Amino acid sequence: MSGNGNAAATAEENSPKMRVIRVGTRKSQLARIQTDSVVATLKASYPGLQFEIIAMSTTGDKILDTALSKIGEKSLFTKELEHALEKNEVDLVVHSLKDLPTVLPPGFTIGAICKRENPHDAVVFHPKFVGKTLETLPEKSVVGTSSLRRAAQLQRKFPHLEFRSIRGNLNTRLRKLDEQQEFSAIILATAGLQRMGWHNRVGQILHPEECMYAVGQGALGVEVRAKDQDILDLVGVLHDPETLLRCIAERAFLRHLEGGCSVPVAVHTAMKDGQLYLTGGVWSLDGSDSIQETMQATIHVPAQHEDGPEDDPQLVGITARNIPRGPQLAAQNLGISLANLLLSKGAKNILDVARQLNDAH
């Protein structure tokens, strides 16, 4: 009898209710805020589980004197976190989706994509230029951005401005803007500013005609071990179906173009009346040469937790077992079709030249 009692006690200790789920994140304040929001949602869904947040620095956090596009290494903000995932030191990792490459290392998958916040870019102005827009900034004003995508589009749109690289986390960039006289304004992701509670610093939100956004911008991705079915089931509740389908289309477009950090590629997606609209573009580094096109596809946005595919093969690095396969494939095909259209119009040449120029500098 006593033996059975011990077995029952052991089973209770090993039951999922007692389990601590370890969540990996970057150390920056924004990353911690984003991770806290994901953990809060998981806690609400699984009140019996405990969650421990483990923060670590990544290569991208450490190399702050070089433009991201020049470092010449993929997975700048993800490699150390993936290493911890691989060694079973954490069970899942919360990322900004735009930091996750469209091809993940073997053994990993994006197990959830959370509801997207505003994906557009924002302009934050130096205190002396508050009330201005990019259009009304004085001639030769210097605007800071760490992104080739932003610089290429904005140089084309605002030729009277000069664009220079600015690195560091959000706090560091804002301090550089406010305390030094080098920059009249800087460009940042609206979602990051909003998550930090800095709505009052948003001086201008850039519309798609001015600057399309990065693939996955404004959404959070939760990376897990691809074979860890328990954790895949656990994080599945975080999937937002519309965000998922938009981001599958965007990531398929980028992957098929073979774009990345070192080339200016941008997108804009919208879901309306059962249609998914995808606009994508590529630019030369100075913005003088560009190709942009829009395509659409009829896609039914499923309700969360309709029964999805059981075999769960990944699409552009994403596993969404609780979302039907048909809409996911339709979104992926839309991204591939748009990429093929741009490639047929000469996108590869623009991107190759951009890559060579970026590598040469």
Score class of each variant (00 low, 15 high):
V38S: 06
V38H: 03
V38Y: 03
V38N: 04
V39A: 13
V39G: 07
A40K: 13
T41N: 09
L42M: 08
P47D: 09
L49M: 09
F51Q: 06
I54R: 08
I54F: 12
A55T: 08
A55Y: 11
M56S: 14
T58V: 08
G60M: 00
G60A: 04
G60N: 09
I63P: 12
L64I: 10
D65C: 06
D65A: 07
T66S: 13
S69G: 10
K70V: 14
K70Y: 09
I71F: 10
I71S: 08
I71N: 10
G72Y: 11
K74I: 07
S75Y: 00
A84E: 07
E86H: 13
E86T: 10
N88R: 11
E89H: 09
D91M: 03
L92P: 02
V93I: 14
V93K: 00
V94L: 07
V94R: 00
H95K: 02
H95W: 02
S96I: 01
K98F: 00
D99A: 04
D99P: 05
D99V: 02
P101T: 11
V103L: 08
P105Y: 03
P105Q: 10
P106L: 12
P106S: 13
P106Y: 07
G107F: 13
F108P: 15
I110G: 00
K115S: 14
K115E: 10
R116P: 04
H120Y: 13
D121W: 02
H126L: 08
H126G: 11
P127L: 14
K128S: 12
G131E: 08
T133D: 13
T133F: 05
E135H: 03
T136P: 05
T136A: 08
L137H: 05
L137F: 07
E139F: 13
E139D: 13
V142F: 07
V143R: 03
G144Q: 00
T145C: 05
S146R: 11
R149P: 02
A151N: 12
L154F: 07
Q155W: 11
Q155R: 11
Q155G: 11
R156A: 14
H160A: 05
S165Q: 13
I166M: 13
G168M: 00
N171Q: 12
T172Q: 02
T172S: 10
L174G: 05
R175W: 10
L177V: 12
E179Y: 11
E179M: 10
E179A: 14
Q180G: 10
I186W: 01
I186A: 11
I186Q: 12
I187D: 01
A189P: 04
A191F: 04
A191V: 00
G192E: 03
L193D: 03
L193M: 14
Q194C: 03
Q194K: 12
G197L: 04
W198S: 10
V202A: 10
Q204H: 13
I205Y: 15
L206H: 00
L206G: 06
E210P: 02
E210I: 15
C211P: 01
A214T: 08
V215L: 06
V215D: 02
G216R: 02
Q217E: 03
G218D: 02
A219T: 07
A219H: 00
A219P: 01
A219F: 00
L220N: 03
E223I: 03
V224C: 14
V224P: 05
R225A: 03
A226T: 09
K227A: 15
K227I: 06
K227R: 08
Q229P: 07
Q229D: 13
I231Q: 00
I231S: 10
L232P: 06
L234K: 12
G236M: 02
H239V: 03
P241T: 08
T243H: 11
L244G: 02
R246P: 05
A249L: 05
R251L: 01
R251A: 00
A252D: 02
E258T: 01
G259Q: 01
S262T: 00
P264M: 00
V265Q: 02
H268Q: 14
T269Q: 01
M271L: 11
M271I: 15
K272E: 08
D273G: 01
G274I: 01
Q275E: 05
L276P: 03
L278C: 12
L278P: 08
G280A: 14
G280E: 00
G281I: 01
W283C: 07
S284C: 11
L285D: 14
L285E: 04
G287H: 05
D289V: 13
M295P: 02
Q296T: 05
Q296V: 12
A297T: 12
T298C: 08
T298M: 09
I299R: 08
I299W: 04
H300D: 15
V301H: 03
P302F: 05
Q304M: 06
H305V: 10
D311T: 06
P313K: 08
Q314N: 14
L315G: 02
L315Y: 00
V316I: 10
G317W: 12
I318S: 11
I318Q: 02
T319N: 06
I323H: 07
Q328G: 09
Q332K: 15
L334V: 15
I336M: 04
S337N: 14
S337M: 05
L338Q: 04
N340H: 02
S344Q: 07
A347T: 14
A347R: 15
K348M: 05
K348W: 13
K348Y: 02
N349C: 08
L351E: 14
D352I: 02
V353L: 06
V353G: 07
D359Y: 13
D359M: 02
A360Q: 02
A360C: 00
